[in-house]
Design a protein around this nucleic acid. Structure first.
Lengths: 126, 126
DNA sequence: GTAGTATTAGGATTCATTACTAATAAACAA
DNA sequence: TTGTTTATTAGTAATGAATCCTAATACTAC
């Protein structure tokens, strides 16, 4: 059974209050303001536990370290090639695409992930 | 200027002869059959150089180590959740999607990557 | 051939992530 | 409240992919 600890709670609370898709390190830095002696291992372990609980999900975008967000409906992401910022994209997920490719290839397709790349609003104007 | 070395040539030749999307380690193991004392650093460096030359491209699929393939037109990939196998998918890349999302969001979209996940032919039947 | 320079092998280093362990703190029952 | 059980923690060691470093080597052009 899972126990309720202030470390786990602080990590989840931080994720629920941000849209920034932080890395484990960024979460560590943030939560340390509240619990100064929390260890990085604790952050990693709790990120794993929270995933298993279905409360958050891990994001592995092209060649970058893992990022985390609160669990949402399936959606696409955008990553700025200049500043690295990650944004959620509202475009609806194309489930039909999975069916079409499955039919054409004979593969069993469970889902797909899509990542847009380009320049965010800030990085376009400079 | 780039020099022509048997190490670089062997790496490129192997990639040109496979559809397996190998990792750096797999490339290392393979090329070592031909050049037993090649070092892993040499493999990594040449993979980088070959990318800069535009001959190969790096593949970073969800939370796995880098894989490599000969440069092709933009296309989608499939990764088997059971055996890890990676396949190219013939489905045409939807450039219109980039335009639509750019228009809707104001982001500058250069391209997108898409990865299907599921079970390959072999892993469906067991 | 000689000179100039990119490349190599091999080992050291980095960095994200995981594993390990003794100490601690939830949870729960007596 | 106290004791017991067990998940969790802090801190540190270990792993593994990828990069960096350096003296020795091998391309390439002249």
């Amino acid at each position: 059974m899972n126990k309720h600890t202030k470390q786990r709670e602080a990590i989840l609370r931080f994720l629920r209050g941000t849209y920034s898709h932080p890395t484990a390190d960024q979460i560590y830095d943030e939560v340390r303001k509240e619990i100064p002696n929390i260890s990085k291992g604790t952050v990693y372990r709790n990120l794993k536990v929270l995933q298993e609980m279905g409360l958050i999900s891990e994001l592995n975008l092209n060649g970058t370290v893992s990022r985390f967000e609160v669990k949402q409906e399936s959606h696409y992401h955008f990553r700025c090639e200049k500043c690295g910022r990650v944004l959620d994209i509202g475009e609806p997920v194309d489930k039909e695409l999975d069916r079409r490719v499955a039919l054409r290839t004979g593969l069993k397709i469970h889902h797909h992930q899509l990542e847009f790349q380009g320049l965010c609003h800030d990085c376009q104007h400079e």
